[in-house]
Nucleic acid binder design. Structure first.
Lengths: 130, 130
DNA sequence: CGGAATCCTCTTCGATACTG
DNA sequence: CAGTATCGAAGAGGATTCCG
């Protein structure tokens, strides 16, 4: 599994989306695993700015919920692979639906926000990007 | 517009959903407005536990993003109505998709979480219900 | 009635450093 | 390589009180 380091647009306004799949990273991880298992460090590549702590937490939560499986190989150096379960795979359709909504309506939402005289504080950006 | 005070199941595990539409209340507000405009206080009924501060914030954010319109009538006592825009209405299909996913898979996710030996800490519940 | 103003807590996220 | 351990900042969400 080779993951494209550029698979996520760094200026993608997904942070402004009125949706979240799980926490901040879950949807992206599901997408990363769509075409097969990946290793911890491989996931860190397209997820450029994720810290190991947060990646660990997110993967553990996903494993706990039955979205991914974790397989540790007894080798040296160690190797661990994460793979989508059927349940995790079932999220793909929904993520697709969110993406379709976004391509159809997100620009509209963003334009409206831009023009709005309403204060952006407090709360500033709700789900805004960093 | 009469809103059913019981329209949201108080023990609904929606807090455990791996999705969020906007912030915690946005999706419920969209649902509340599905069949026509409603007043501030009317919204507080089905949204039982929401504080006025949070409802105000959420509605302002939604207005800013073009999801709802706010109409203040110059009467006494004052009356304000919130209504879905076309953009806000476009969320209904997505909310429907999330609901379908939930009825098909949420029990599975919850059961897996229940059986999982993985610690629920730290982070405890990600998107857990109150 | 429809908020605004305050104050506070809990969770999320991140940076950094270290380890089997 | 695949994490763990700490620390810290920020924001969402809530409780309560007050106001035109």
């Amino acid at each position: 599994m080779q993951l494209d380091p550029e698979m996520f647009d760094p200026v993608c306004p997904s942070g402004a989306l009125p949706f979240r799949i799980g926490d901040k990273w879950t949807a992206m991880i599901v997408l990363c695993l769509e075409n097969g298992p990946a290793r911890f460090t491989e996931l860190r590549v397209p997820l450029k700015r994720i810290s190991p702590k947060v990646l660990t937490e997110t993967l553990k939560a996903m494993e706990r919920d039955g979205l991914v499986t974790r397989t540790a190989f007894d080798e040296n150096p160690p190797r661990v692979e994460y793979e989508l379960t059927a349940l995790g795979r079932s999220l793909l359709a929904l993520i697709g639906a969110v993406r379709e909504w976004s391509s159809a309506h997100l620009a509209d939402l963003l334009a409206h926000r831009e023009r709005s005289p309403l204060s952006h504080r407090p709360g500033e950006s709700r789900l805004a990007a960093p």
